[in-house]
Design a protein around this nucleic acid. Structure first.
Length: 155
DNA sequence: GCCAACGTTGGC
DNA sequence: GCCAACGTTGGC
């Protein structure tokens, strides 16, 4: 089992939005970065652990525990002309962008970015690296355990 | 709104 | 294949 951190802008899809969805599950639309896409396509398995992260907001941080709920499949928004995620260069026979479904298991308190940065055991968490902009990053098991502990969530 | 850092594009 | 210009991300 692998672990991941996935960023979402709460203005678009917050952890509350995801919890309110059927089965607490949302399709992770809008990833338009090849490295992040490849993580979904090649790295993710159903059941993998996910840290639900709010970005581009007043208090960025980890706000929930989730799981990967599907294998990767084509992101329909790439074919939707009205979507901000429309990609005219992507063809239906050969979709460029994929997504996975993500199921929220538990909303947590906001474990904020400053708190994450302050923790000595999380110094090399990928998402904390300088200049990191990837919306999906792998999380090492020791980091996963540490974060669950900080959130007082049992594995 | 600013801007550092990074990814993508396209001319050559 | 190089690299300058441009676009995007995301914290502040």
């Amino acid at each position: 089992m692998n672990y991941w951190l996935m960023k979402s802008e709460p203005d678009e899809v917050s952890v509350d939005d995801a919890l309110a969805a059927p089965e607490s599950t949302v399709p992770w639309t809008g990833v338009r970065n090849y490295q992040a896409r490849n993580f979904m396509r090649d790295g993710m398995r159903v059941g993998d652990g996910v840290l639900f992260y709010h970005s581009s907001c007043a208090e960025p941080g980890i706000v929930g525990i989730a799981r990967v709920a599907s294998t990767a499949y084509p992101d329909p928004t790439q074919f939707d002309r009205k979507s901000p995620y429309h990609d005219p260069a992507s063809k239906r026979e050969e979709p460029r962008w994929l997504l996975v479904d993500v199921q929220v298991l538990k909303k947590t308190r906001n474990l904020t970015l400053p708190e994450l940065r302050a923790d000595p055991e999380l110094q090399d968490l990928v998402v904390l690296r300088k200049g990191n902009r990837l919306s999906i990053t792998p999380v090492e098991p020791r980091h996963w355990k540490r974060i669950l502990k900080l959130l007082d969530v049992r594995a």
